[in-house]
Design a binder for these strands. Structure first.
Length: 477
RNA sequence: CGGGGCGUAGCGCAGCUUGGCUAGCGCGCACGGUUCGGGUCCGUGAGGUCCGCGGUUCAAAUCCGCGCGCCCCGACCA
């Protein structure tokens, strides 16, 4: 057990705060609720960004950039939207030393200003679909903040698409939901549950919202990405109309979807352990760290030379770092890189050189268990294979954790027992009153109605009336 | 905004109850040596608006008042 980090079981929240600071992901800012993302944390975000961006482009979406400031009146055009966001707006009232004619909102999200522009750009059915994404910062004045999970300012991507038919728009929200799910599984090794949000949990201004929900290592749920089918709500509010094939004026159907820097928090809380971070190999800023080990001065050059050679052989295909710092002991470095979550460590000492091998230590398996010798002959094959195994290892561990903390509950008593520790899968009658009562009594909310429904009929976990949907309940971040 | 905790060196803390000498400890940092296959050891040294303002007092980190900030738990949220 580490003395440098609070144990997860002792105080998960404290563990999280400590590891984010100690692993150099981020720091607190002088401005309340904001954060400084440090280079190591930012590189992780860049990896997330690049992988998502690649997928967006593969599905025909393109990037653009819209302004940070939005006229206040834009927000007011969509009733539910403004009601949802009004409490958390940052508003600029002065500029250039003068009071502004109209206050400017610092964007909490960009549906309105993008809607305004879409109205101008879309004239004909030939202009559709319009598939735009932007990478941006947004500001929401939150009551309580936590590094990465909820900060006043955060980074994200927001996709905004416009379509000729509701089916096409729905299809895009589902396409992106699949894309997010694929990203979570294959890059972040987080087994998310894709599903539909309940009416009370959906985005302000949406017809319906989809989500990928992940379970953190304390059993709580984290909404890790959302996609929204906005119907014609914003089209009507912003007059986004086009002429169809029959020369008739129609409103478009729009969507929006986003993943934020919260994803960094999801990675931390999905895989981290009492030694520190455990980063998924495909996202890790450093995939392989090489620690040279020597005892005597005359061994030093020999070992460093071998370490450099290993680095050169791997660095074309992997993100490799050689830790050649002389003032620190090998043992210290082991702990340090474990805390930073580097998925694979290669140790090279005189004994290894003599045997024409290196020692590889997996971050996902403690101590001796995760160590193996790799012959220098098949370095380029064996090391990527080990990284692949780490990905599989943490992914399977995350699934096992999620499944062992998810209960199919048949009674409200079982439900009460389940939600403090994880997810409860239960029938729900679709009535917001039951949902609200459950929240009031247990602090658990409907995380989603999973896409994967068993069908059939059951009894609502709260009121006992006939129910046709299974909902996943949990306490959420 | 309600409840709780905290604010003293870069970080973590002690000292405060019962006011008093030069404000201390661990880690880190700098320098020298020693060590290096799982957080080496020793020595030397640098580093302080004791959160701020006001009050009580011969004397305040310590007592009193007001304010500010941070963290945790709740109500709202990507």
């Amino acid at each position: 057990m580490s003395d440098f980090l609070t144990a997860q079981k002792k105080d998960f929240s404290k563990w999280y705060n400590e590891i984010v600071l100690k692993a150099d992901l981020a720091d607190y800012s002088p401005v309340r609720g904001c954060m400084i993302i440090k280079p190591y944390g930012y590189t992780l975000w860049e990896r997330i960004r690049d992988e998502l961006d690649r997928r967006f482009k593969e599905t025909g979406h393109v990037n653009a950039y819209f302004p940070l400031f939005i006229p206040m009146s834009f927000l007011e055009k969509e009733k539910e939207h403004v009601e949802g966001f009004a409490p958390e707006l940052a508003i600029v009232t002065h500029g250039g030393g003068k009071k502004l004619e109209e206050p400017l909102v610092v964007r909490p999200t960009s549906e309105t200003i993008i809607g305004h522009m879409y109205a101008k750009w879309i004239q004909s059915y030939r202009d559709l679909p319009l598939l735009i994404n932007q990478w941006a910062n947004v500001v929401r004045w939150e009551m309580r903040t936590k590094l990465f999970l909820r900060t006043t300012e955060f980074l994200w991507q927001e996709g905004h698409t416009a379509h000729a038919t509701p089916a096409e728009a729905e299809e895009d929200t589902r396409l992106i939901l699949d894309l997010y799910t694929d990203f979570a599984f294959n890059e972040a090794a987080i087994p998310v549950i894709p599903g539909l949000k309940s009416e009370s949990e959906k985005f302000a201004g949406a017809v319906n919202s989809y989500t990928i929900e992940a379970m953190m290592k304390d059993g709580k749920a984290l909404q890790s990405g959302t996609t929204h089918f906005l119907g014609q709500n914003f089209a009507k509010a912003f007059d986004i109309q086009y002429l169809d094939e029959h020369n008739e004026l129609q409103y478009v159907w729009t969507t929006s979807w986003g993943v934020s820097t919260r994803m960094v928090g999801a990675v931390v809380m999905s895989h981290g352990d009492d030694q520190g971070l455990v980063l998924p190999p495909r996202l890790a800023p450093i995939q392989v760290v090489i620690v040279p080990i020597w005892r005597k001065d005359e061994e030093r050059e020999l070992v460093l030379q071998a370490a450099r050679a290993v680095k050169e052989r791997l660095q074309g295909q992997l993100r490799v770092h050689l830790d050649a710092r002389e003032e620190l002991t090998a043992g210290w470095k082991f702990n340090d890189w474990e805390m930073r979550g580097v998925p694979l460590r290669i140790d090279i000492g005189p004994r290894d050189i003599a045997k024409h091998q290196v020692m590889a230590a997996r971050r996902d398996m403690p101590g001796r268990q995760g160590k193996s010798f790799v012959s220098l002959d098949n370095l380029e094959i064996a090391i990527p294979e080990l990284l692949e195994k780490v990905h599989q290892g943490i992914y399977e561990k995350a699934i096992a954790y999620r499944d062992s903390h998810t209960w199919e509950v048949e009674s409200y008593n079982e439900f009460r027992g389940a939600v403090p520790r994880g997810f409860a899968r239960a029938w729900w009658c679709d009535d917001a009153k039951c949902e609200a009562a459950i929240k009031e009594e247990t602090k658990a909310t409907i995380r989603c109605l999973p896409l994967d429904q068993p069908g059939g009929e059951g009894r609502c976990i709260y009121c006992g009336e006939p129910a046709h949907k299974i909902a996943i309940f949990g306490r959420a971040y």
